[in-house]
Structures are given as structure tokens and as C-alpha cells.
Write a protein that binds this DNA or RNA. Structure first.
Length: 572
RNA sequence: CGGGGCGUAGCGCAGUCCGGUUCAGCGCGCACGGUUCGGGACCGUGAGGUCGGCGGUUCAAAUCCGCCCGCCCCGACCA
């Protein structure tokens, strides 16, 4: 492609709207442009990258036995009522009405559609295993789009859905896709970490996230360097700490006028947050439960949900708190709380001589000791993991990092197949619900992740497998001679099947060099008067290394050699 | 949804505090002419603006006040 015949609006300066590297560089390299918050246009170069990633995903999905389909973006809301997910998903869905007055939504995901399809078309155990996937736009009305392509309202996703008639077979389908995912990310030049994750609104029993470690990532990852355990912060299980020995000091009441938060109390009483027992009142179905946790820790509501076995635990309101504790919000404590279940995070075990609310306005208690002053019904792992916490699998300590979630796999069980009637007849003639799995990859987000992991101060350094073109051909100060030589070389390389972006613009050499670095194609070929005089052209890898001078006749061979050495593929 | 920041030419910004002959400005880009020509060249000429929008205060508003819109960042019930 001739640079002069396409649209690559590079930017000399950093756009003020972009904070993270991928966002900044994709804008500067003229690959994407924002329409409005969370919505981007892919310009020719950006689209080529998107397509490269898409092609790799498609190849690996196909060879893992999945079959591509294409489902509508627009979906009837009625389907979401049938699956019972309308309530939880509605707020991220953009809805509208058809002319007939039917409520429609832009699909944020397609479990409902695919399950309805399979319910209608698959009736026998002989037709499974079946895995259907598609690559297409998804729409989610995100509360806060962020970081360019990382979190958009509209994005490109690959979503796959497996159907099996036994747990064992479903497990096998899951493994197959899990392994395909590892190949996909590696082929795209991404280093990923797989972590155990929470299943969230998808439901199901087990799920893994594929995370690209990046400081700009939105998700926290807890990892254990000793045993390799890794999990999303939401999910990371913690080892119970060593209990602290109680003290003999007498319980004492202290006035704390208007001091409601641990932060306020910490400075008022000059005691560290680790000595506070926070008492949070949660609504669990009809009952109210008191949840105790150390003052410096946070309750992980996903864990709490599992511990309480209720759908949506929610913090109790001011009214309920008064009713249960007899005091306003901010002065709750476990001592003397009657007729209510006390659930405590393991962190409470480390508190001896604690501080907690007195269940009376403007009063707190000092020298509180568990067992002596209050009795916990159950200790559980309820805290959001923090650096240095004990690993649940070994004696190691967890580290906390950040990552971009590029893929997510779920074992769904029969949640959707039951709700939407996706059943088959088994060998014995019984009707059984299909066991499902679902598997997503954020294709557009992967583009951002690749840039996060592959850039330097001058610009993007594309892995060859997803680079928009393989070769940047620069004609320096193109007079007639340089121009005609470069034209010839361009035609020759293109005819040989190489993807070449030919910078034929009438701009200065410096601009071409800088733009080439910014755009980040794997190999740069320079044609200029200086080297032409010696009968040579120059090659250089974007990833570094020396400039190589070769005669134009040897150029093709030289390029092929450089491209082959790479771990990437997809060089047709 | 809460908090913070921002909105002036295509892009990056100054001017806003303290209203008025520095108030429509700078750099880059763009167009034309000329000189240059291997890491963002130089000279000259020129085009380009509802100062985010609406309303108000004032003799006078980019500047002060009110409402609204958009964008970016942080946080979303932790007692």
C-alpha cells in the first residue's frame, strides 16, 4: 500500500485525552479515532491489526473444533426474561423498541440467543459435543469507558459456546478451548497469565481469566510465587493467619463524638487500623448478618455471597442498623449484639486488644478480645486479597499485580439450558439438559493489550503476526531516481506476496523515520540516494539491532529470512 | 451516580484570578511561491475561530454569575 493513497493521520504530539500507552500510541499512529466516549473508528491500519488478530482467533477456534456462526446483534428482551437475566443485565443494555412495539436490545453477550438456537435445533446426544462461536460487535453501556480500546461501549468480541451431555464431556470441551486460548495469545505475541476468576453475572461453577500483565490494567491479580497459584482479586483464597493471643486488659468505653469511619478513629485514638474490628451489617435474604473484618481490610462481596449463600448480599440501611444495634451507622460492634449471626473474616483472628463500636452513639470500646467479649459464629475467608497475605495452597505469600483481561472461560453447567429448554435425549431415552461452557475473547481489547506489551519511547513495536504490514518501505527525498527505484522495489515485494507499506509521500526524511517508528512495522527498508550510490538499500528491525545494507536483488531473500526467524506467523 | 480536572483554529496550548489597545494569540499542521534534502528543514505569503451551548450582570464578557452539554481522571455503598 502506498502511504499517499490511504489514511494514516499520525500525530506529532500526545493527544490530551489519552493517558495509557496503548491509547496514546494507537491514536498517534493514526490507527483509531474516537467518535465519542467509548466508541472508536478503526482507520485502515487499525482495522488491519484487528483483522490479523481475528484471523488467528478464527484459525485456532476452527482447529479446536468450534464452528463459526453469526448471530444478530439485536435481540428481543423477551429472551432475557426467559433466562432470568434481565434484572442483572438490563443496566448495561441499550434498549429500544421496534416499530411493532417489541422491546429490543443490542446484545452484550449471546448465551440466550445461542441456547435458544440449540434448544430448537439439537435434540439428540448424538449431535454433541458441539461448540458454536462467532466474531462480532458487542454492545455494553459501560458506566465508564476507559483507556481507549481497553473498555469501550462497543467492541469486537469472539464468543464461543459449548454443549455437552455429561460433566466429563463438558470438562473436555473446556480444556480444548483453554488450550486453544493459550495458543491464540502466544501467537499474537502476548504473554498472558491464567487466573481463577469469579463467575459474576454469567453464573456457573468455574472460570478462568486470561490476563495480560500491565500496570494500566483494570483488574487485580493475586499470585503466589512459591506454588504458582494465581487468581483474580475477587476470588483469591487466603490462608487463615495465626491467631493472636488475647490480652488481660479490661474492656473500656471511650467517647468518640461523630467518629464514624476507621480513618477518623485512627487519628482520633491514635491507634493503627489493624486494631479495629469493623462491623458491617449485611442484608442476607430476610435476615441481617453482622460481618466482622479488620479495620485495614475490605470485604470481598463475591466471597461473602458464597459464604452466605444468597444472591445479592447488600449493606443494610441506616434504619436497619438502628434496629439491630440500637445505634446509628458508624458505631456498630460485636460486643452485646443479640439475636444476629456473627460472621468474621480470618483477619479478625489477628486482633488482640481490639477497638470496635459500642452500639451506642458516639461511643467505642477499647481492649476488646474475641471469645472473652463476643463470640463469632463462624470464621471465613471474606477479605479482598492484599500483598503479603498467606497463599491458600502453600506456605507462600501472595503478590498483587494488575492486568488486562483479554479472555474469559466459564463452565456454565445447565443454568441456561434448563431455563431455555436446551435438552437432548440420551442413550437411555431420557431427556437431559445440555451442559454448557462459554468462552470470550476481547479482540479489540487484545489490540490495546498487544500495544501495552510491545512499545518503546518512539512508538509501537508490533509482533509480526499482528502487524498491519510486515515491511515499511521508505523512499527518502524521492527525486526521480530514488522514486523509480523504490517504486520498482515496492512492486517486486508486493508481487512476491509481502505486505508492504510504501512511504512515497513528498515529506522530509525525518518525518518518514519518525512515522515509521511510531507505526511500528517489524522491518524498515530505506531507499535513499546515499545507499543507492553504493548500489544498496538498508534494512532494520523495528525491535532493534543493526542496519543491514543489501543489494536490491538480495532484498527479498533478506526480508524472508528476517521474517522467518520470528516466533510469529501469519505472513502470507 | 459522587469527587476532581478540562473545553479558545485540524492538533498541542497561552490568555480567564484582576472585564477594556498584547484579545482573537503562539507552536505545529494546511495552501501557494522559493530555497533545502538521510532522524519531525528554512524564508515569504495566505486561509482558517458561534473562545463548548444557552441565559444573565455590565457602557463593555474568552474573562464575572447561573443552568446545560461534552471529554478525561479517581471512586462507587467498607459504618
Amino acid at each position: 500500500m502506498r502511504w499517499s493513497r490511504t489514511l494514516i493521520p499520525t500525530l506529532k504530539e500526545d493527544p490530551q485525552e489519552a493517558e495509557v500507552a496503548s491509547h496514546r500510541l494507537l491514536l498517534r499512529a493514526g490507527m483509531i479515532r474516537k467518535l465519542t466516549s467509548g466508541l472508536y473508528t478503526y482507520l485502515p491500519l487499525g482495522l488491519r491489526v484487528l483483522r490479523k488478530v481475528e484471523a488467528i482467533v478464527r484459525e485456532e477456534m476452527d482447529s479446536a473444533g468450534a464452528r463459526e456462526v453469526r448471530m444478530p446483534i439485536l435481540q428481543p428482551m423477551e429472551l432475557w426474561e426467559r433466562s432470568g437475566r434481565r434484572a442483572v443485565m438490563e443496566e448495561i443494555m441499550l434498549t429500544s423498541q421496534s416499530r411493532q412495539g417489541r422491546e429490543m436490545a443490542l446484545g452484550p453477550t449471546h448465551e440466550e440467543v445461542v441456547t435458544a438456537l440449540v434448544a430448537a435445533e439439537v435434540g439428540s446426544y448424538r449431535q454433541v459435543p458441539l461448540n458454536l462461536y462467532q466474531i462480532g460487535p458487542k454492545f455494553r453501556d459501560e458506566i465508564r469507558p476507559r483507556f481507549g480500546l481497553v473498555r469501550c461501549k462497543e467492541f469486537l468480541m469472539k464468543d464461543a459456546y459449548s454443549f455437552d451431555c455429561s460433566e466429563a464431556a463438558a470438562e473436555k470441551s473446556y480444556r480444548l478451548i483453554f488450550e486453544a486460548y493459550l495458543r491464540i495469545f502466544s501467537r499474537c505475541g502476548l504473554k498472558v497469565e491464567t487466573v481463577e476468576a469469579d463467575t459474576g453475572v454469567m453464573g456457573g461453577s468455574l472460570s478462568h481469566e486470561f490476563m495480560v500483565p500491565a500496570s494500566s490494567g483494570e483488574d487485580g491479580i493475586a499470585a503466589c510465587p512459591s506454588c504458582g497459584y494465581a487468581a483474580n482479586l475477587e476470588k483469591a483464597q487466603l490462608r487463615p493467619p495465626e491467631p493472636a493471643a488475647p490480652t488481660a486488659e479490661e474492656l473500656q468505653t471511650v467517647e468518640t463524638p461523630g467518629m464514624k469511619s476507621v480513618a477518623e478513629l485512627t487519628s482520633f485514638l491514635s491507634a493503627p487500623p489493624e486494631r479495629f474490628i469493623k462491623t458491617l451489617l449485611y442484608r442476607a435474604g430476610a435476615a441481617i448478618v453482622a460481618v466482622l473484618i479488620r479495620g485495614d481490610r475490605q470485604v470481598n462481596e463475591s466471597k461473602l455471597k458464597r459464604a452466605l449463600a444468597v444472591e445479592e448480599p447488600a449493606l443494610a440501611g441506616e434504619e436497619e442498623i438502628r434496629k439491630v444495634t440500637g445505634a446509628p451507622m458508624g458505631f456498630s460492634g460485636p460486643v452485646g449484639l443479640k439475636g444476629i449471626r456473627l460472621l468474621a473474616d480470618y483477619s479478625v483472628l489477628t486482633i488482640a486488644d481490639g477497638i470496635t463500636g459500642a452500639n451506642r452513639e458516639d461511643l467505642h470500646l477499647l481492649h476488646v478480645n474475641r471469645e472473652r467479649d463476643f463470640k463469632v459464629d463462624e470464621y471465613a475467608d471474606l477479605a479482598v486479597a492484599a500483598a503479603g497475605d498467606g497463599c491458600s495452597r502453600c506456605a507462600g505469600r501472595l503478590t498483587i499485580g494488575r492486568g488486562i483481561e483479554v479472555g474469559h472461560t466459564f463452565k456454565l453447567g445447565d443454568k441456561y439450558s434448563r431455563a431455555l429448554g436446551a435438552t437432548v435425549t440420551d442413550e437411555k431415552g431420557r431427556e437431559i439438559p445440555l451442559i454448557m461452557g462459554c468462552y470470550g475473547i476481547g479482540i479489540s481489547r487484545m489490540v490495546a493489550a498487544v500495544v501495552e506489551q510491545n512499545h518503546d519511547s518512539a512508538g509501537i513495536v508490533w509482533p509480526p503476526s499482528v502487524a498491519p504490514y510486515q515491511v515499511a518501505l521508505l523512499a527518502l527525498n524521492p527525486d526521480e531516481e530514488v522514486s523509480s527505484r523504490a517504486d520498482g522495489i515496492y512492486r517486486g515485494l508486493a508481487a512476491a506476496g509481502l505486505e508492504v507499506l510504501y512511504d512515497d509521500r513528498p515529506v522530509s526524511a525525518g518525518i518518514k523515520f519518525n512515522d515509521a517508528d511510531l507505526v511500528g512495522l517489524p522491518i524498515r527498508v530505506v531507499v535513499g540516494k546515499k545507499s543507492l550510490r553504493a548500489g544498496k538499500v538498508e534494512l532494520r528491525d523495528r525491535s532493534g539491532g543493526e542496519v543491514e545494507s543489501v543489494s536490491p536483488d538480495d532484498l527479498l531473500e533478506s526480508l524472508r529470512r528476517r521474517l522467518e526467524v520470528r516466533p510469529g506467523d501469519n505472513l502470507k
